[in-house]
Structures are given as structure tokens and as C-alpha cells.
């Protein structure tokens, strides 16, 4: 377990492995390094604390979730509880070049696991 104040980076590929994710849209971006996380079901909360390069974690799979990730300059979106967006939303993510992962885990567990691995929340 990482020290409390030690921030580490993980690649999308490592995150995917740790959380046993389905890679919905990889876009050859799995080697992107992530240090920060934005987790919320409310899109305005994500936008309020937008930090370029963060991983956005949300249970919301509509097209606005992908647009929010794009406007917040997020590195990727991770959906929870095995949710996969509709095909048109995946297409939008492809156009906007936002990689998509999906894990069967819920928000609390995902955040706990990633925190223990050294990632940190934006706010």
C-alpha cells in the first residue's frame, strides 16, 4: 500500500488490470499515465474541478458523460457496475478520442482500491 501522501501514477492498462475492466474503447491510449481522479455522478461537479489528464469515474453512461470528460480534458472515462454506454455514445467517444473502460465494481470500492495504489482525487 502506498504511503498516505505519496502520489503515484498508473497507466490505463494497469488500472484496467487492477479493476478487472472491460476495455470498451482503447484508442491505443492504454499507456497513458494517470495520477488524478475525478469521481462523481454529477457532471457539474466534474466540470467544477476539471484537471487535465485526470481519470473520470462515473456511473452515468449518457452522451453528456463523454462530452463532460472531453470538456474537462480527462484522460479517460471509467464506468462502474459493468455499465457500457450505447453504441452512439461509444462512437462519440471515438470521435472525441476519449478511451472508455468499464468495471463491475462500484464507486466506493473503485476509489478505495485506486487510492491505495497511490492515485488521488482532484478535490
Amino acid at each position: 500500500m502506498a504511503e498516505r501522501n505519496e502520489i503515484k501514477k498508473l497507466t490505463l492498462s494497469e488500472i484496467s488490470e487492477i479493476l478487472d475492466c472491460e476495455i470498451v474503447l482503447g484508442l491505443d491510449s492504454l499507456d497513458v499515465e494517470i495520477a488524478l481522479v475525478l469521481s462523481s455522478g454529477m457532471m457539474s461537479d466534474v466540470l467544477a474541478f476539471a484537471q487535465p489528464g485526470a481519470l473520470m469515474i462515473t456511473g452515468l453512461t449518457n452522451s453528456q458523460s463523454v462530452r463532460t470528460a472531453d470538456f474537462a480534458d480527462a484522460a479517460a472515462v471509467l464506468y462502474l457496475r459493468g455499465k457500457i454506454p450505447e453504441e452512439k455514445t461509444i462512437q462519440l467517444a471515438e470521435e472525441l478520442k476519449i478511451p472508455i473502460l468499464s468495471t463491475k465494481m462500484g464507486m466506493f470500492d473503485v476509489c478505495g482500491v485506486l487510492y491505495a495504489k497511490g492515485l488521488r482525487g482532484v478535490c
Binding site: M42, M43, S44, A48, L60, N62, Q64, T68
Partner: peptide, 9 residues
Amino acid sequence: REMGFGAGM
């Protein structure tokens, strides 16, 4: 709110 909006932000 279920669609992710209406956080008052």
C-alpha cells in the same frame, strides 16, 4: 439529476 445534471453548480 438522474442524467447527471442539477447539482446546482
